[in-house]
Amino acid sequence: MFEAKLIQGAILKKILDAIKDLVNEASWDCSSQGMSLQAMDTSHVSLVAVQMKADGFDKYRCDRSVTLGMNLSSLSKILKCAGNDDTITLKAPDDGDKITLVFEAKNESETSEYEVKLMNLDSEYLGIPDTPYSVNVKMPSHKFQRICRDLQQIGDAVTISCAKDSIRFAAKGDLGSGTVNLCQTASADKPEDSVSISMQEPIIQSFALKYLNHFAKATPLSPQVSLSLSPDVPLVVEYSITDDDGSDFGYIRYYLAPKIDE
């Protein structure tokens, strides 16, 4: 039996909003450690990895590890039926062919129950090496979202370069060009507004903005986003997931293969 209860059901709604347009079908791997998912987009250019720790749930029971394969747009449609303040409980019996979602409104007697069909998916897992990166940047997630959205009006790709204590996002296209330069901020008054840059070596790499704009759909999950880059390896864009109390619940990480000069 698998059962996971989340009082802040809105977190699950936000996670689905952040992955459903990138990946259509994926499997949740549920174990005593928590729920995780790894899936590539159909063109195999990007990958999303989600981790929700067992102790982040308000109730969590997983007698034996289960893989819940499902259509994410179906799950997302069902989650839209839950209110933002609802408690969400996921239930799956061992060897069942569906998952049950129970939504409970706070301070009300209303309960709704939905079922989503499970699928047998041929999941391919990629081994992601845990390597140090040349550049790590932490910046406000809404700022990253705006930069990616603005630059997509100029061109299809963004060139990210980092030197000393600044990071530069540049795009060019038929209409002209645009650059956004961010410098490391000194103030720690408002950590969520800060930009911090840690650099081992200067870097310059280009990425498709279409994917970065997909990743930015995770913005409501976290006030800060972390970008990790190294020469000739995929970019990592990470949003940590915290609950209202600020406790660490897990993360959503996106990996994006670079564009290269032919």
């Binding site: 195999h44 090496p129 498709a208 293969a257 290269i260």
Partner: peptide, 13 residues
């Protein structure tokens, strides 16, 4: 510029 795929960096486990 050409787009590379992730599978050229990460291998199936």
């Amino acid at each position: 510029m050409s787009q590379r795929t992730l599978t050229s960096f990460f291998k199936p486990t």
